[in-house]
Amino acid sequence: MSVARAFETARAEGRAALIGYLPAGFPDIDGSISAMRTMVESGCDVIEVGLPYTDPVMDGPTIQTAAQQALEGGVRTRDVFRVVEAVAGTGAPTVVMTYWNPVERYGVERFAADLASAGGAGLITPDITPDFGQEWVAAADAHDLDKIFLVAPSSTDERIAMTTAECRGFVYATAVMGVTGARKATSDLAGPLVARARRTTDLPVAVGLGVSNGDQAAEIATIADGVIVGSAFVRTLLDHASDPAAGLAALSELPRDLAGGVRRG
């Protein structure tokens, strides 16, 4: 299924889509596949597979810890495609979230080709913008992959228009000025940002950064087409590091809470 279709389905059901993130290879490769399948079964509409990177400047301590653990476990770029293939096999649209250098190093065109043949739906690129990502834009277009760029509360209207014009699949709106990680309160910056993005595009707009529970998801679901949750999933697995079965059980509860939220919203 495509990302667009997942958003349409959610919209038809009168709710926001739930997008869940985990890094590939955390806690190990098979463990990450099981965890992401669990997330799909328990209500995530789209899965974001993180490509662990040594210098994740947009991530807070939780995701940094997971990514570092995955790298220490020896995860490779090619393993990420294996994870994508396994998760996409569930039918849930699966996108990769990656910092730029691993893509450039792998070869932009080769990365797009291998992502497409693994059944991946597209790429989220947190540390490049379309004006510096034209090589990716061309490769994604050639392989019919979604291009998900970020807009931020600090973005000017001109940059939002430029960015959404280059997006396909959905637009990723960062709810806060900051890095990934659970936060107690939902940001009041998300609403105005989503509204500004919507003035420039018909694409779905999903909000990420700092959403970790059903109440926050419900709040975001009132203003956006999708809710993106990352650190809360990672935190759940980190908290059950010594007992993977309990980790999966706890993981399956979280989307239920969040999915309840996106339906309430």
Partner: peptide, 9 residues
């Protein structure tokens, strides 16, 4: 300038 959008402004 290969940077997150949040810092571009």
């Amino acid at each position: 300038r290969f940077m997150p959008e949040a810092l571009v402004a």
